[in-house]
């Protein structure tokens, strides 16, 4: 267990933590009064398979 390996494992663990935390925080922050504009893109959302899109969740609701 060299020193560099430990630093690297900690760094990757930190990255995973940053990812999860930023994802959760992003889901929690509300969209600033732009909810109207989302409806226009509803037809596009059907073709796009990106599941991480916050707009898609809104449309499913």
């Amino acid at each position: 267990m060299t020193k560099e390996l430990i630093i690297a494992i900690v760094a990757i663990g930190l990255l995973i933590a940053v990812f999860f935390v930023s994802y959760i925080l992003n889901k929690k922050t509300p969209i600033p009064k732009e909810c109207e504009e989302l409806k226009i893109d509803a037809s596009k959302c059907a073709a796009c398979q990106n599941m991480a899109c916050t707009l898609r969740k809104k449309e499913e609701k």
């Binding site: 990255l15 995973i16 940053v18 990812f19 930023s22 994802y23 925080l25 992003n26």
Partner: peptide, 8 residues
């Protein structure tokens, strides 16, 4: 991980 966190 970097790219996804950056986008979020």
């Amino acid at each position: 991980l970097v790219i996804a966190s950056l986008v979020q």
